[in-house]
Amino acid sequence: MAKILVVDDAMFMRNKTSKLLQENGYEVVEASNGEEAVARYMRENPDLVLMDITMPVLDGIESLKQLRAYDPEAKVVMVTALGQKSMVLEAIKAGARDFIVKPFQPDQLLEAVRKQCEA
């Protein structure tokens, strides 16, 4: 089963997302900021990263760039809120595979995850 790294500084969002993914048979590891995300990625080698954009220490975009530098094949899906258009655009340029807009429906998230895991 695919392993997914959920990166979000809000514990609530992390828990919610992890629970949903676990319920659908995915293995989940978590990180609460960008720096931690990079470290976890190197250790766990997940199949997919769900990355929040606005985070302390190292934000989602920077973290994404570091991840892609470490592993050019890294699959990252950005999690964003409305009004962050330019940042999402930058993330796509930096190699993010997809994005999900918060608040999202469980199906939307699962659909996006499924697509990436199949690809």
């Binding site: 964003t80 409305l82 258009k85 999402v88 655009l89 796509i92 997809d98 994005f99 807009v101």
Partner: peptide, 10 residues
């Protein structure tokens, strides 16, 4: 859709 321009770009 939300952020249509980003979808386009994607």
């Amino acid at each position: 859709a939300d952020l249509l321009s980003v979808r386009c770009f994607q």
